[in-house]
């Protein structure tokens, strides 16, 4: 299987009245409407949201980001798939109860498609149940992107990394209103959104935000209605 495909954004295709993950090998043959998987990350604070300057993110796309929208690549999928197995097993999930959570839809598990990578990463694929793709996969995948983004922001801005806050989010990821999902027809994106509210100030201490306006800015609720992205509309209506 061509390695280059794993650096493509994950695609979801609409057929049989549902969105299905397209395996990299099917990318060239799929005829159904296709959407890129994006992970939107939004940090809420009270009546506003925390925006970032490009100096904080280094993405070179826009001067200010009220929301961070990142493509989710097949390689991310691969890593998140494996990590989520460890995260769930760390929570005492046995093979049996993971199987109970497994979806019946024909989702893919990338470690099966790329056994050589799994081998090089010392992943014990035999320990992962055959239909491992579980309800929490997208939550775990979103958390994986979120934790990497948070680490990146802390590295670039010097903000102290709060391991406790991240760990608390990871533990609560399956139960909280931490995530939501949307379809954006205009941008052809299937969005999985991650939103922090009460934990934002634990991740980014208020005093640090105030001391570094070159990296952070608060975007008030009154400005959000001008954005049409479903994630921002959803967050705005929740405020």
């Amino acid at each position: 299987m061509p390695m280059a495909l794993i650096f493509e954004p994950v695609k979801l295709a609409y057929y049989k009245s549902k969105l299905h993950i397209v395996a990299p090998v099917e990318l060239s043959t799929i005829r159904a409407p296709v959407y890129d998987l994006k992970i939107d990350i939004l940090f809420g604070i009270c009546d506003s949201i925390l925006g970032f300057t490009d100096a904080a993110l280094g993405l070179n796309k826009q001067p200010v980001y009220p929301i961070v929208s990142l493509p989710f690549y097949y390689i991310d999928f691969f890593v998140a798939d494996i990590l989520s197995a460890y995260w769930l097993s760390g929570r005492g999930a046995s093979k049996k109860n993971i199987s109970e959570h497994a979806n019946t839809v024909d989702e893919i598990a990338l470690y099966k498609l790329y056994p050589d990578i799994a081998e090089r990463c010392n992943v014990d694929t035999a320990s992962i149940p055959p239909s491992y793709f579980h309800h929490y996969f997208f939550d775990c995948a979103a958390f994986y992107v979120f934790s990497n983004l948070y680490f990146r922001i802390c590295s670039r801005t010097g903000c102290p990394y709060s391991h406790d806050a991240v760990e608390r989010i990871r533990i609560g990821v399956q139960a909280s209103g931490f995530t939501c999902n949307f379809l954006s027809l205009s941008t052809k994106e299937a969005i999985y959104a991650v939103c922090t509210t009460s934990s934002t100030n634990k991740l980014f201490p208020q005093s640090y935000l105030e001391e570094h306006p070159e990296y952070f800015l608060e975007i008030s609720r009154s400005e959000l209605p001008f954005f049409t992205r479903p994630t921002l509309r959803w967050f705005w209506s929740k405020l």
Partner: peptide, 27 residues
Amino acid sequence: LSLLEFLHLSDRDELSTAVAELKCRWR
């Protein structure tokens, strides 16, 4: 129809599309 199915119909009303995009959950 589910909102996901609705979003894949042709000739959708514009306001309905905005509502469906906000309320549709594909997961």
